[in-house]
Design a protein around this nucleic acid. Structure first.
Lengths: 157, 157
DNA sequence: ACTGAAAAACCTCCGAC
DNA sequence: GTCGGAGGTTTTTCAGT
C-alpha cells in the first residue's frame, strides 16, 4: 500500500489519473501533448497509457456523432419489467442484437433494466418496442428525450 | 438534392457514414487506416473528417474510463420533478457545475429531466441528491445501476 | 519507472487532375 | 472531390540509467 490515505483512488496515483483526465476530454490527444500536460516524457506517457489499457482502466476510444446528422434524431430511455418473474435473467443477451440499443443497464428499483436507444422516428421507436417485447418477454415504459443540455461529460478524476 | 431516396440519411452519403462508423468504433484510428477501410486516399479522408467536424457531425473524441478503477463505482439515474411549476426552466444551468452529473436529458413524461451520475459511494450519492435538490428546487427519484451489460455501442450508421 | 535518441509511421499541406 | 508527394511531426522501440 502506498498513497491510500482514504481518498477516492481505486489504486491509481496522480499521474495516471491526470492521463485519464486528459484522454477523457480529448481522446485523440497526441502522446507528445499528453506528455507536456502531465509533465512526463513521451516514452513514459506511452508506457503508462499502454499499461492503463491493459489494466482495463482505459476501455476504449470513441468519436461522438450527432444523431440528427445520421438520421437518428430520436433518443429514448426504455425501462423493462419482466412479465414472467420465473424466467431466467438473460435479457441482455436477448437484446444485444438490436443495434438501436446503445446501452443496457441492470438496475435496482421497480424495473429490472434501463435501455438507452436511438431511432429515426416515432415509427422506428414503435417497431423497436415491438422487437424488444418479442425478444425479451417484458413490458416496457418509454421516456422520450426532448433535448440534451449536456452529455458524456468526463468524470472528475 | 442527390441520393435522398427516402432512406435514413440526414444529408450524408455512404463514404461519410463509413468514416463516422469507423471513428465511432475506434476514435484513435489513424487517417492512414481510415483511408484503407473506406477506400480513399489519406488526404481525401483527412479533408472529409475536417468537414465532418466543422459540420458538427463529429462532435468530439473521448476515452472511456472504468468507473471502478477511478474510485467512482456507483452509477445512477436521477429523475427530476420541479417542486414549483411556475419556476423558470433553467435546471441544466443550475446543475452543470456538479461534476458528478455526466449527462442531462430533458424528457417527456411524468418527470422533466433525467440525469446520469457517477459517485464514489452511497454516501456520495446522498450528498449529490442533497446538492441537486438545493441547486434546482426539484424532487428526485433515483434508480441505482447494479451492472452494465453494455454501454455506448456505436449507432448503426 | 523514466530518459533520450533513432527508425518507422503518420499528419498536413500543396499543386495537379 | 480526389490524388500523390514532400516536409515536419508523432509514434514506437530500445539501450542506458
Amino acid at each position: 500500500m502506498s498513497d491510500r490515505t482514504g481518498g477516492q483512488s481505486g489504486d491509481l496515483e496522480a499521474t495516471d489519473r491526470a492521463i485519464l483526465r486528459e484522454l477523457a476530454q480529448d481522446g485523440r490527444c497526441s502522446f507528445t501533448d499528453l506528455g507536456e500536460r502531465v509533465g512526463l516524457s513521451v516514452s513514459a506517457v506511452h508506457q503508462r497509457v499502454r499499461r492503463l489499457e491493459q489494466r482495463g482502466a482505459l476501455r476504449g476510444y470513441t468519436a461522438h456523432i450527432d444523431g440528427e446528422q445520421i438520421g437518428l434524431p430520436l433518443t429514448a430511455f426504455i425501462s423493462l419489467t419482466p412479465t414472467d418473474p420465473a424466467a431466467p435473467d438473460d435479457y441482455p443477451q436477448r437484446l444485444q442484437h438490436l443495434p438501436e440499443i446503445e446501452s443496457c443497464y441492470s438496475v435496482a428499483g421497480d424495473e429490472s433494466y434501463i435501455l438507452q436507444v436511438r431511432v429515426a422516428s416515432p415509427l422506428g421507436l414503435e417497431e423497436l418496442l415491438r422487437q424488444i417485447r418479442e425478444a425479451a418477454k417484458v413490458s416496457t415504459r418509454t421516456t422520450v428525450v426532448l433535448s440534451t443540455p449536456f452529455e458524456n461529460r468526463p468524470p472528475e478524476i
